[in-house]
Design a binder for these strands. Structure first.
Lengths: 128, 128, 128, 128
DNA sequence: GTGGTCTAGACCACG
DNA sequence: GTGGTCTAGACCACT
């Protein structure tokens, strides 16, 4: 079962995109495998304090990408082959890092200043 | 005059928030100083291909934060004392980096893997 | 035994309401009489290719209207006195016809055009 | 401007389908022509006491059928060539009448009984 | 003012 | 219990 324990909702970014992202991160990290059970709309909606439809929208888009399969009345399961995992992993790793690098450059930091800041924050974070 | 040359609109994030962020980044980087002229709504609207109302909304929120002062009928100017600059800088640097660090951890990367990836992408980016 | 042979499911109208309507139509037409046996949930479910719960819902509402009586564990039977039959008949005949008349008026047909069209279609229909 | 003055919401039938139907009826009757202005989401939603999104859904489906054209920020207009009008007219006339005929048959009425009932109700209705 | 989208809540049909 | 759909309200971007 996919975990959403430490999931926190961000500011103005659409919730359903955050959920999609969270699941993709889990897949990329290997925490979510093939044919794994996905939390139901209601369960996840109660857990996150979000409307079931918002969950549904996220799941529906993941279904369009072939990452989830849903059958009406039955539970939903992940469907991720190794290629998909690799693709998602690269997409997230490179994408996020590029965004951060770009932001740091705009803030006027040098490469070493930025990496140093990141290294500091890495240690202070919750877990490793 | 504040530059928006390389400004690109992001995915689902509200445009007016992206503009606010862009200006704050310029202030944090020192590229935008005190009493500097802000592009008029019309100019910026044409430059970004965005509706003037959207620009207006961003400027209005920056006014509420005291970062911009508008004298009706005249040009608008920034108003950033040193404390404000420091505050914005920390907020953006630490905030963005914490988000990135968290994302990399979720993706299962080690500290060195993440920093290495960032270092690689740093060189490949547009400018320094 | 109430017949559902030629029952076809309509577009967006709730299935349980269609079932209720079908039974009321049978009663109004005299095809369904007093103390007549109602198909069991299981049988009707299989016959219509519909979930037993949906049948259950329709029957439950008919029970609330006093048109069906169920003795738990035993078969269910209709319970329609003459007044009920009359009431249902009028309701369906007048209601449906008023709706159709209204629709034809909105479509700009004259009385004779509409009646002529109906007369034509009457002959072409399946049975009489 | 398309009129919704005498529009009344029906029982369990989806509202957006009722709205679609109402507009198609107007087109079939010739009351709605080509390039005619469609009431805005807000106006119609206020008029019918319905949520703007429900109107939007109806309009969106009409747009998919090519009956309406919408441009973001601008008003929406009908787009009905003569072929479309003919097609809609037949669809509604024949469809509705067939449904009514079928219902009357199920209720056990003879052709003449049904037509007589309809003729009676025709006179009693609001306008002609 | 306009249409487009995101979030929310209730209901229907299914296993 | 599950997922699917309809209705609702607020917000965003555009004319």
């Amino acid at each position: 079962m996919i975990s959403f324990e430490d999931f926190v909702l961000g500011d103005g970014y659409p919730i359903y995109l955050q959920i999609i992202r969270h699941i993709k991160q889990g897949i990329a990290a290997g925490a979510i495998g093939h044919q794994e059970e996905v939390p139901s709309r209601r369960v996840l909606s109660a857990l996150l304090g979000v409307n079931p439809n918002t969950i549904q929208k996220a799941y529906h888009m993941l279904e369009d990408e072939g990452i989830i399969v849903s059958r009406s009345g039955a539970k939903s399961y992940t469907s991720v082959d190794e290629d998909t995992v690799q693709h998602i992993r690269r997409e997230l790793q490179a994408g996020d890092t590029a965004v951060w690098v770009e932001a740091m450059k705009r803030l006027g930091l040098s490469r070493d200043q930025a990496l140093g800041l990141a290294a500091d924050l890495w240690e202070k974070g919750p877990e490793n």
